[in-house]
Structure formats: C-alpha cells, structure tokens
Simulated scan of single mutants.
Amino acid sequence: MTGPTPLTLASIRQAPKAVLHDHLDGGLRPATVLELARDCGYDQLPAADADTLGRWFRDAANSGSLERYLETFDHTVAVMQTPEGLRRVARECAIDLADDGVVYAEVRFAPEQHLEAGLSLDEVVEHTLEGFREGERLAAEAGHPIRVTCLLTAMRHAARGREIAELTVRFRDRGVGGFDIAGAEAGYPPTRHLDAFEYLRSQHAHFTIHAGEAFGLPSIHEALAFCGCDRLGHGVRITDDITDSADGPKLGLVANYVRDMRIPLELCPSSNVQTGAVPSLEKHPFDVLARLRFRVTVNTDNRLMSDTTMSREMHKLVATFDYGWSDLERFTINAMKSAFIPFPDRLRIIDEVIKPGYAVLLG
C-alpha cells in the first residue's frame, strides 16, 4: 500500500464498524418475513414475493412521518412471536451485520410485543439471545467475527417500563447490555417511565432513550435532566439549541451539556430523513455536530425499512460531506467508546480490531 484505499461502498464494507442503534424488528430479510408468515399463519402481508415486499417496506417508510413509519413494524413483529421465529431473526441479524463488516453491534427490541403466542417475557429474551449466539458462531466460522449486545426496549405508549427495566437487569450478565424506550415521542414524554429509570440508576444499569427525533428540545431535556440517560437515540433536534452568530455557532445550555458530558448521539441518517426528522441528507446536522466535536455515531436504525446497511450509511455520509477514512474511524471509535459493555472490552475492540483495520485502509 502506498496510500489510502479509495473510498467506495465495497471498500467501506471491509472497514470494521460498530453500530449502537439497530432495531431487530426493523432488519428482517424480506424472504424471512414471507417464510415466517407462512409458518405461523399470518396472512396480512401486503406482497407475496420477496422483491415486492422489500419495495413495499421501503415505500411505506418513506412517508416523512414517524407514526406512519412505525406502522410497517406491524408485519415484522407479527412473524416474531414464536421461539423459532425469534431465534431465526436474531441469528440472521448477527450474520447480516457481520457480513457487512460490523464487529460490534447493539441490537434492540421490545419483548412486550412478542407475547401473542403465549411466551413469557423471559422466554422471549432467552430465545432471542440464543439466536444472537448462534449468529455470532456462524459469522465467526465464516471469517467475520462479531459481538452482539442486546438492548431491551419498553414502548413509550404502554405502561410496562419498570417491568422491562427489571427484565434488563435480570439478563444483564447473559447478553443484555441496557434499556431503551421507543415509539412515537409526541404525547409520550420519557418521564412517563421515570420509575423505570430510577430503578435502572439504582442498579447501575445502562440505558438510552429515543429523544429529539420527531419531538424537539424538551424531549432531550427530559431524557437528560430527569431520566439521566447515558445516550440519546437520534438526538438530531439538539440543533434547536444551536444558533448562528457572527463568532460562529453558539450553543445553548442543553447543547453545551450534551457536548461537555460527551453524551453520545445515535444518529441514523437515512431513517432521520424518512421520518421527517430532517428534510434531506444534505441538510442533516450530522456534519455540523461532527465539526463541533459532539460525540456523533453512525447507525442504521431499521435496515429493512431504510434498505440500508452500515456501509451504505457511511458511504452516503462520505458522498455528502466528503469524509475520509480518518473521519469514519473517528465515528466508529466514538461508538465503541459509548458501548454498553465493560471498559476493557471496549478498549480491546478499539485497539485490536478497529485501529488496525483502519490503519490498513489508510495505507
């Protein structure tokens, strides 16, 4: 090597990547959705072949509305109600991420949405974790090792936050790394689940909160000031607290706090455009936040709905903001620094996998 490897989608696939914000029920293979639907007798799918079904998910998600975007999950969740379905989806998730060069992944899902076939919350988590471990084993055998950590999500509109928080703590030594709340933000502030967050803090457990995606700065403020989250899921609306001045960007109290405390932002470029959180990729605040040295991370959110991968997300950012390998390395290390695994494990992946991988690409 006499210089950096050219930045292409194919070469980015070779780079070691870390994803913190990936939804299990948003990353199914269309063919798997069809097969699981046949197996469980679900007959409400909008298409009968994999290609058409994949297009339907993408088109339905491109509405510009978070609420409409979330409706697509009715179909994926419906086929994830059995032990076999949960294990298969989790197994394929790990394999697909590893095939894309992801070496560390945090994948989240809401156990409360997978009880229709009679499984208990504990059984749902057990089968999902078993699928992740199977996927890790198969990925390693194929030469693409990956570590998958599971995050358990409570739905904002429901009242099971404390129950899912306790489930998180119960499984935290068995592959569950933390807790999350998700769903429509408007009308469902994070403080509705304050008892869950108080319990998690009492147990020294990690948690992130979907905030600042469809709703603005008040959602971020509550997530930080009252709930005490470790990370912000999306958080793009932090720019509501950044104004232009003659001396450059001026940060308000919340934005300053997020930057000063190195609160990670789980930014999902393609998804943020689809849900209307930002008007276009060119106007996505990712670059502004990166230049202001916020701890920005690149994420997929929902690979099926956005027809994306980590490599595609990075490639889009390169094409839009003219990033180089050193930028992608920084975003990846940002993610690993922010992972919900022990500090020595984070350092090992950074020092033994990520830095050597980018050193080769940088030439």
Rank of each mutant, 00 (worst) to 15 (best):
L45I: 06
H114W: 04
A78W: 12
Y42T: 03
D345F: 03
D180G: 03
D195H: 08
N334H: 10
H234Q: 07
D322P: 01
T320P: 00
T308S: 14
E123P: 02
E130R: 13
L200S: 03
R137C: 00
L265H: 09
G178L: 09
E116M: 10
H206W: 15
R38E: 13
A339N: 01
A246T: 15
V89F: 07
T332P: 00
P342F: 03
G41T: 08
A50Q: 11
S245E: 06
R231C: 00
T243N: 08
G27V: 07
V19L: 08
I220V: 13
T128R: 08
W56A: 01
D351F: 05
T2C: 00
T2D: 09
H144V: 07
A214S: 15
T297N: 10
L232N: 03
K316G: 00
A78V: 12
V102I: 05
C40S: 11
T5W: 14
Y257K: 06
L347F: 07
S202K: 09
D240H: 06
R201F: 08
L232M: 06
V318T: 08
P264A: 10
V236S: 00
S120V: 11
G135K: 12
V298Q: 01
G101K: 07
S271T: 15
R87E: 12
G212D: 10
R87C: 02
D244M: 05
L24K: 03
G118R: 07
G178P: 01
A105L: 02
A196Y: 04
V298T: 14
H114Q: 01
P6S: 02
D96Y: 10
K17S: 05
H315M: 09
P16D: 02
A60Q: 15
R55Q: 14
F331W: 11
L281Q: 12
F294M: 04
E329K: 03
H144G: 05
H23F: 09
L265N: 06
V258Q: 07
F171G: 02
L121T: 01
A117P: 04
V318D: 07
G41V: 09
W325I: 01
R137V: 10
E313M: 06
H206G: 02
G131T: 14
V296I: 10
P111T: 07
K316H: 13
P269V: 04
H193N: 03
G178M: 08
R160M: 05
G357L: 04
A246I: 13
T300S: 14
F331N: 01
F109S: 02
T82C: 02
N299W: 13
A335Q: 04
E116W: 07
R170K: 15
I238Y: 11
T8F: 10
R162Y: 15
D43A: 11
S219F: 13
L97C: 00
K355S: 07
G175D: 03
A18Q: 01
V19R: 02
R137N: 05
I209H: 10
R13Q: 15
A255W: 13
V176H: 06
A335T: 04
P269F: 04
V273P: 12
A31C: 03
G228W: 14
D99E: 14
F331K: 03
E116C: 04
